[in-house]
Design a protein around this nucleic acid. Structure first.
Lengths: 321, 321
DNA sequence: GTGAAAGCGCTAACAA
DNA sequence: TTGTTAGCGCTTTCAC
């Protein structure tokens, strides 16, 4: 028995000593079986390359370990079928709760329903299943898009294009809507010839940029739904001899590590990865402790941070002056 | 009982149906307890941002899952104390085997000894504890350093500097030795004024570059132990008005994602991350299956691949012609 | 304050 | 081929 009130200190001492002597190693598996909980949390992410999800995972691990929970991480590799398998794996491992960020292509949510049917606590983060009764931690992507575009307008840009992602994904949809709202707010038209949707790889970014330039050669800025596509766009702009930011200003999203390594350095919206991870675990642990049905589903909205770098700096900032 | 030879198909069928009807969910925890194995593998990596370790983890997950094993990933964040904690966590979770890549600062290996004392199969990858009797999968870092420098020599460089990492780490030591060997092989002197050791962050790279230029303003190439430091070096070179590669050629190590995003694009040595992960799991699973004492420790050496990009291309390659 | 016993859900061994 | 049983190592309960 480890540390129970109502046991004399003398006996405790004796037990401790004997344990050390026999080199006793507690079997947590047996404890887990008996108590009906494994003290393990499962995480499903689209991938862990890229700065953002790595940060989220770091935040998750920190808090979970501190609370005495282990973490099992699975990557869906942006594949819906793999994501389903991951969920099964985690259920098999008898995890006490699951954190999910869905893949680009997840449209069917049966595997998610299965989790809830079994009564396993579940919290979404970043890329969520949009439904009233789930717990989730997300960035205010709408606000992120809005402030990025507002910033571009303040820099004097007027014909602002958008490289967008799959619109069934909450994050891409909201960023696009933030973009549109900012334009409207400043009495600028939202022209669909200035919007291009893709899966946002580097290649998608360059192709998208080429197409946008064909459709409107006069555009003076691009707000991209992620940094990868921004880089592709930047390459095309340079190739065509357009200066960034003077001819075309550029703002990305995610604040990847390489954003400060491009030339010019890429402005981007930071997604608060570590904080998102920490918050999501807190929500989940609460559900684990209280039982999933005793906690009302909650949505937490994190505020993004626009990081202005060279790719969108047209007017010297006050700080620089 | 699930799928045992020596049971009539009819009974199997009946059992299956009843199981479905009662919505039976096997408890793998109980099975693990009974069988004395958890079907879980533990992994300790320094971090998972950065392309290399993300690839390794991906390789590990793929093979492990295919073999019916779960994977628990822990990050040491390059901290020896955290690494020790990670190992304890994994032992507590009753993992069947452990994969480790040690942190930059790990000098004391007691936690590793504890693992072996308990008879838990253990395989190192990339950054290893150098000792005859452990299993490990590593890159041929010596060869990587050698071919990078040979390539620079072939491009006409003669005063080649080195940005090196902590020499107690096998990878850094071997890359440096490969560098030195290539120079010697071509009758070029190994001058310590052209070598700078650090922890290889971007900042370390820039500071190191500044110092190297002070010590020998005539140097015409740099081989860096990683890509991060290369980028720092590149920034300094540009700031000082030296053209890359014409004045100073540059080769990094790791083939990070951003290597093809810098300007000029950074030549780098690829570390075969995914293959390393896959190989390491194979070794580990073998030990798990046979028992750790029934398998002789084995070291696997993977061959690196030099990727020549703009930062070191002085003579047009045949392909380009 | 302490010891004994039951049982978490499964598998392996053995009896029928 | 099938049914029964013991026990993995722990926690919880209850009697002492």
């Amino acid at each position: 028995m480890s540390n129970h009130p109502g046991i004399s200190d003398a006996t405790k001492q004796r037990v401790w000593e004997l344990a050390k002597q026999l080199n006793y190693q507690p079997n947590h598996l047996a404890a887990a079986l008996r108590k009906g909980r494994s003290n393990t949390l499962g995480v499903v992410v689209p991938h862990i390359d890229g700065h953002f999800f790595a940060l989220v995972v770091k935040g998750i691990e920190t808090i979970a370990n501190r609370a005495g929970f282990n973490v099992m991480i699975c990557q869906s590799n942006e594949d819906a079928a793999q994501e389903k398998k991951n969920i099964e794996t985690l259920l098999n491992a008898q995890v006490d709760g699951i954190l999910v960020s869905v893949s680009l292509y997840t449209q069917d949510f049966q595997h998610i329903e299965e989790v809830r049917r079994r009564g396993i606590p579940l919290v979404f983060f970043d890329r969520i299943m949009e439904s009233a009764d789930v717990s989730a931690v997300v960035l205010d992507d709408y606000q992120g898009g809005y402030s990025a575009v507002q910033h571009l307008i303040e820099q004097g840009c007027r014909r602002i294009a958008h490289l967008g992602g799959p619109q069934h994904l909450n994050i891409c949809k909201n960023r696009f809507q933030g973009y549109a709202a900012a334009l409207r707010e400043h009495d600028l038209p939202v022209e669909m010839c200035r919007v291009h949707f893709s899966d946002l790889s580097i290649l998608d970014g360059s192709r998208g940029m080429e197409q946008l330039l064909l459709q409107d050669p006069s555009l003076d800025a691009v707000f991209s739904c992620n940094d990868l596509a921004s880089v592709g766009a930047m390459q095309v702009l340079k190739r065509q001899g357009r200066r960034v930011p003077h001819d075309v200003a550029l703002v990305g999203f995610s604040n990847e590590l390489f954003a400060s390594l491009t030339e010019p350095m890429l402005s981007s919206v930071d997604q608060r990865g570590e904080e998102m991870g920490r918050t999501a675990v807190h929500l989940l642990l609460e559900m684990v402790a209280q039982g999933p049905d005793n906690v009302a589903p909650r949505q937490v909205l994190l505020q993004p941070e626009l990081l202005v770098r060279e790719s969108s700096q047209l007017i010297p900032s006050e700080q620089t002056l």
